[in-house]
């Protein structure tokens, strides 16, 4: 499952970052690594961006990027 498929309020654990390049690197730098928990704060299908809670801070990414983050729902 990928991050963009989660519903609001759902929590998940990151399994893998499949995004490459600068954007993937940036996500890694911001703490999107295997095992990290993310919570979906705001998300609407087709409406960007998604608001996430990761490691105690909020970050917004688009569905396109969220697709590159493999997760397993908790």
């Amino acid at each position: 499952m990928t991050l963009d498929e989660l519903r609001v309020g759902q929590e998940a654990r990151i399994v893998d970052i499949t995004l490459s390049g600068a954007i993937g690197q940036r996500l890694l730098d911001m703490g999107f690594v295997e095992g990290t928990c993310v919570k979906i704060v705001r998300n609407a299908p087709l409406i960007d961006p998604i608001d996430l809670l990761v490691r105690g801070y909020h970050v917004s990414i688009r569905h396109a990027e969220a697709k590159g983050v493999e997760v397993e729902p908790l």
Binding site: I23, R26, L27, M30, D48, P49, D51, Y57, H58, V59, S60, I61, R62, A64, E65
Partner: peptide, 10 residues
């Protein structure tokens, strides 16, 4: 390609 968005909301 539209640049990806990673926007921290402080």
């Amino acid at each position: 390609v539209t640049p990806g968005l990673i926007l921290e909301i402080p």
